Amino acid sequence: AEKTGIVNVSSSLNVREGASTSSKVIGSLSGNTKVTIVGEEGAFYKIEYKGSHGYVAKEYIKDIKDE
């Protein structure tokens, strides 16, 4: 049951290796980017990222929809 969301930041949002603010940053997404959410862990969504997965803070994702 995948969902999509939109990155809701003015600059960019860090994509992390794990569901923690201390996890390594593996990339970033600019505002209004559409993401595919494959799961959630605590305050983070697990998303599809560059052929693999990454984690982003839930508070910066809006317009969550079921695909």
Rank of each mutant, 00 (worst) to 15 (best):
I47W: 00
T4S: 12
G42T: 04
S52L: 13
Y49L: 04
T21E: 13
S23L: 03
Y49A: 01
I61F: 05
V9P: 09
G18N: 14
T36N: 09
K58W: 03
G31R: 14
K50T: 05
S22M: 11
G27P: 00
R16Y: 15
G31N: 15
I47L: 02
V56P: 00
S12G: 13
F44R: 01
T33R: 06
Y49T: 02
K50D: 10
V25R: 05
H53E: 08
I47F: 02
K46L: 12
K65Y: 12
D66H: 09
I37Y: 01
V38D: 02
N14C: 08
G51I: 05
V38F: 07
S28M: 11
N14T: 13
V7H: 02
I26A: 02
G51L: 08
N14Q: 12
G27T: 02
V38R: 04
I37D: 00
K62T: 13
E2Y: 06
Y49P: 00
S52D: 07
E67A: 13
E40N: 05
A1M: 13
I61A: 01
Y55M: 02
S10Q: 14
T21K: 14
Y55T: 00
D63Q: 15
G5E: 02
E17V: 08
G18S: 13
D63K: 10
Y60L: 07
G5L: 04
I6E: 04
V15C: 02
G54Y: 04
S23G: 05
V15D: 00
G27C: 03
Y55V: 00
S28I: 12
E2L: 15
S10K: 11
V35F: 03
D63Y: 11
D66F: 07
I64R: 04
S30Y: 12
I26D: 00
G5M: 05
D63V: 14
K58R: 08
E17T: 06
S20W: 06
E59R: 12
V25L: 06
G18D: 09
N32A: 10
S22V: 12
E40V: 08
H53L: 12
K46H: 06
I61E: 01
L13C: 09
G51K: 08
Y45A: 02
A43V: 13
A43P: 14
R16N: 10
A1S: 13
I6Q: 05
K46T: 03
S10Y: 05
K58M: 09
V38K: 05
G42E: 07
A19F: 04
N14M: 14
E40T: 08
S10A: 13
I61D: 01
E17L: 11
V15K: 00
T4K: 08
K65R: 13
E40R: 05
V9L: 09
G31H: 15
S11R: 08
G51C: 06
S11W: 08
T36Q: 10
K34S: 07
V25I: 11
N32Y: 09
I6L: 09
Y45V: 05
T4G: 05
K62S: 15
Y55K: 00
I64W: 08
Y45T: 02
L13S: 04
E67L: 10
I37L: 04
S11F: 09
S28N: 12
A1Q: 12
S11V: 13
K46G: 02
S11L: 12
I6K: 07
S12D: 10
E59W: 07
Y60N: 10
E2T: 12
E2C: 10
E59F: 07
A57N: 14
L13F: 03
D66K: 07
Y55L: 01
L13H: 03
I64P: 06
S52A: 13
S20H: 12
